[in-house]
Amino acid sequence: MKLTLMIWRQECCKKDGKMEKYFLDNVEEEMSFLEMLDVLNERLILEGKDPIAFDHDCREGICGACSLVINGVPHGHHKGTTTCQLHMRKFKDGDTIYVEPFRNKAFPVIKDLVVDRTAYDRIMNSGGFVSINTGNPKDANSLPISKINADLAMDAAACIGCGACASSCPNGSAMLFVAAKVSQFALLPQGQPERTKRALAMVRTMDEEGFGNCTNMYECEAACPKNISVRFIARLNREYIRARLSEEKKI
């Protein structure tokens, strides 16, 4: 099939970029979206032009490196799919496809479609863990956990940290990411000792990083390639208020 691509090009470390138009023939239905971009890049290299930079790594939908806003939706319109698993058969011959980077103040563009998502790491650094050292913890089965809670924690833990939630949100809010992390630990007994501190610290870092505020539009849930539910945001809202009301000294 033939495609017209409108792709955001931005030089490294510059503030501005623009959409550029590319025509691509011979796109095969079996290609993944990234393989289609590979084909374009191969052509650009042979023409001596700078290939389009985009983040990707595992190409099997789990590392969370691939990003791209495709026709206005992070990872494209297909539900529960990362860009690397989106295949060209979802498009029609003659389509024009818009490809942009994730756009958030907290995710500055590095080059073309590559953005810096270390804001998520900094949120994690502030509290996304259980503080135990490597050593000799007690036997794994000495701590029974209800299957319901373990499964729910796993639903939250499925987050791949790609940033689609914040990038799809009309407000640029990272609540779904933070909610998934806080909920995972709040649901497990291992997370209890730091429950208050974690909720406060992670939300504070999230706010400081310059993400927007959640206004419950649920766009994040629809764009999430791992189908993480906004119910976890409700849980975070509860966790946070609980923490604010019960903190004994300023954390």
Partner: peptide
């Protein structure tokens, strides 16, 4: 805040659920 959180707007944006 929300306005500031996305200084450069999407050139093409569509919504799934909002």
């Amino acid at each position: 805040d929300n306005y500031a959180a996305r200084p450069i707007k999407y050139q093409y944006k569509s919504y799934l659920k909002a």
